[in-house]
Design a protein around this nucleic acid. Structure first.
Lengths: 175, 175
DNA sequence: TCAATGTAATTAGCCGGCTAATTACATTGA
DNA sequence: TCAATGTAATTAGCCGGCTAATTACATTGA
């Protein structure tokens, strides 16, 4: 596998976008914005590779975590969807794949016939247990160069981005 | 549209993950990691909404930018793919959609019969010109709460994440 | 009590990403 | 010169996200 960096696409975007920037402030903020996107996407790709080595995707991993902590290792698809923050349709697809992989089993609720009960299998348990150390290791590596103050600084800056995002949503309310 | 915040899914992930953390350092870094993901994804969703109001996706917008700057407003699909940093297959799909929308036209190269030439249409031009101010406005809003030092600080922290990402890739080389 | 309404899950069909396979043409070198 | 190899683009088929429609069952209230 070739992970030698090609930052070229990012540079191309910056070049193209800066040519249309009206002010130097626009230029700086746009560069920063593209930098945030690029950094996140490279980070996520690297993290996804770790997950893939364990035959997992991020969402599937999170679903296994929820099941692991649930009473009797069982939850309804709708409960999983709400915890995950995805639609029921998406979760339905993910669960189909996880059943095929043998990570979960589907069962029926005795009371409400509409309900499906998703149960963690031993094999799903094992995959999760195996992945967890790699997960923390990956996060450690990503933030290897961070000092304590760096962590706090980033937390503060993320908070400001969240506020800006909320404003952007308000500006565009009513479609 | 309802943009009232449900941070619940993020909280659920943090709760579930922290329960399995070995050290307090793991806890802190994992929380920070989830926070980075959450913040980016909310920001991107808001930005995508702005694009969608102009019948664009981010990749389509970038492709229009490349064409706008190109000699005679023309590029080959393979050139666009390399600049964009996506596969030719992906770009092929995007271009099909953009042709349907009337943003581009496909033509033939007189010399090399394998080559397709993508040309920006007047309508594509117009959509781009119209979107650009909204684009800068969106970026401004996202970073509305950032001071100059904040910008510099974030740039530095992103650099550290990039370094960590590269290390993570090295650790997982040869899968 | 049963028609109207609500709810759980899935399916169909779209988007934008990917890899692998295919098609068509161009280039190269013995 | 033409077989082997390279290259441009597309297509097939997968993934994980979405909305809208559908199916099947549960609840409610006149």
């Amino acid at each position: 596998m070739d992970f030698s960096f090609s930052d070229r696409p990012n540079d191309e975007r910056i070049k193209a976008t800066l040519a249309t920037a009206a002010s130097s402030s626009d230029s700086e903020l746009t560069t920063l914005f593209l930098n945030v996107q690029w950094t996140y996407r490279e980070m996520q790709k690297a993290y996804d590779r770790v997950l893939d080595q364990h035959h997992l995707s991020e969402s599937k991993f999170i679903l296994l975590m929820f099941l692991e902590r649930a009473d009797r290792h069982r939850l309804q698809p709708s409960e999983l969807a709400e915890k995950l923050g995805a639609t029921r349709a998406t979760v339905s697809k993910l669960l189909t794949g996880m059943e095929r992989s043998g990570f979960i089993q589907k069962g029926h609720d005795s009371v409400d016939k509409r309900v499906v009960l998703i149960e963690l299998t031993a094999s799903g348990q094992a995959v999760l247990t195996n992945f967890l150390p790699s997960n923390f290791q990956a996060v450690d590596t990503i933030f290897a160069h961070f000092s304590k103050p760096d962590q706090q600084a980033l937390t503060g800056l993320l908070e400001k981005i969240k506020q800006g995002t909320q404003q952007l949503n308000q500006e565009n309310e009513g479609n």
